[in-house]
Amino acid sequence: MRLILHIGKAKTGTTSLQSFLYSNRSHLEAQGFRLLDSAGSPNNVGLAVVFSTAGPSAASYWHRERGIRSEAEKRKFLQETRFMEEIIREIRASPAHCHTLILTSEQLWERLRGEEIEQFAQWCRINFTECQVVLYLRDQVELATSRWSMQVKAGNHLSLRRSVSKLLSISPSADSDRLKQWSQFFGKIPSVNIYRGSGAWDVRSHFAEKFMPKVEGLAFPPTSDNRSYGKVSIHIVRLVNALFLAWTWKAEGKQPYIKARARLRSRLLAFLRPVIELDKSRLRLSRKRASMVREHFREANSEMSRIYLNGDHLTAPPEPRNLEQR
């Protein structure tokens, strides 16, 4: 069986793509494309957890749902539930007409490094005849605001200025270096694609046309999965986050008042959700800050463009912008 392995990155429409695949599951399977339940659905995060040696902060919602707080508890859980054996059993139970398995989780890109990628690649070679690794990258200027929105959704109340500063502290060659590891251990350069976060471009259509070109009749329902906050709503949520702590590991057991405050935060955000969803404005960086981001990643982006993108440019040209969210 052939494998299409979608590894991310985060904030490139991964949630939308995963929901699309699983909502079309029966239709895809009828035409030879298999999806799994045992690795998690619609995000197959379980595979990232198995091959990652990071602690429970990695893919934390997976650990939290199972009450896992340490690497030792994770290993015990995987052994007792025969987690990997169940994944392999489900793969081998695929209908005879299924020729391709699709695995998808941005956590594979976010969490696996070096030897972890190598071990995962060995597992893929054992269980599949061919593997196509698929990665979507995003213009870092667009990523900066989307990343800030994600941080605020997670419970932070940091400003855009601080969020961008953290982005600029990342090595500009981090993505390029990791791509080299995936290429090395899988013995093949991944299919690297540019995510276009605006306009009529749709990651679901792009994925279907490029990697499942013969599949017909797929449904593309309107989606707002994991949509970024707007200019007003993000400050509403930041204020709520500043007043009420989000869920943390400390919320369990020792400090019950933190857990109570986290519940209050969730209820308040649920009450404000209709107001938040009305805000359709787009977050944008100022020209100055956008230029800083472009310059930081310029050389690394040129290298990735040459090696992985056939000369296509990851970073969009500057746009005239006057306002910046603080």
Rank of each mutant, 00 (worst) to 15 (best):
F51I: 00
V141C: 12
G197A: 02
P274E: 10
G187T: 06
N301P: 03
V293F: 14
V45P: 02
H63W: 05
I307R: 15
E130T: 05
G13W: 01
W201T: 09
G230R: 00
D139M: 02
P256Q: 08
L309S: 10
H235A: 03
S159R: 06
D37W: 04
R321T: 07
A316V: 05
N226E: 13
K9V: 10
Y257K: 07
E73V: 05
Y229G: 01
T129W: 03
T12F: 13
V293M: 15
Y229R: 02
N43V: 05
F128V: 03
G55T: 09
R178A: 09
L160S: 14
L158E: 13
G8P: 12
G8C: 10
S60Y: 14
T15D: 14
D37R: 09
E115T: 06
G187R: 07
Y308F: 15
L168C: 01
R89W: 08
A72F: 04
S105E: 07
R273E: 07
G197M: 02
G8L: 08
D177I: 02
G311E: 10
D37S: 08
A316R: 12
S266Q: 14
H206M: 04
A144Y: 11
A30R: 14
S191N: 11
R287I: 06
S60N: 06
L168W: 00
A270K: 09
F83K: 03
I4L: 15
S205G: 11
I7F: 13
R306M: 09
E90C: 01
S70K: 03
S171N: 10
S159V: 04
R289F: 07
A154Y: 05
E118M: 11
E85R: 10
F244S: 04
L17Q: 05
N322M: 08
D139F: 10
K166D: 14
A246Y: 06
G8W: 01
Q181Y: 02
K166S: 09
R289V: 13
T100G: 04
T12C: 14
S163M: 07
L272M: 07
Q255T: 13
G187L: 05
W201K: 07
A10N: 14
P274A: 12
A72N: 10
V275P: 10
G67R: 05
I194S: 03
E116T: 12
S169V: 01
I276W: 01
R178H: 15
R204L: 07
C98M: 06
K76R: 15
W62Q: 03
L3C: 01
I102Y: 10
L160E: 13
R298L: 14
K76Q: 12
I91T: 05
H27W: 10
N193D: 09
Y229M: 00
R273M: 12
T53Q: 08
Q107E: 15
R265Q: 12
T248R: 10
T223Y: 02
G155S: 05
P172Y: 03
R294C: 07
D202S: 04
S183F: 04
T12R: 00
S173E: 12
P213F: 01
E319W: 00
A242I: 00
T100S: 13
N226G: 06
L3W: 03
F186G: 03
K9W: 02
N44Q: 11
T315N: 11
R138D: 03
G13Q: 00
K210S: 11
N310C: 09
A246Q: 02
H63Y: 09
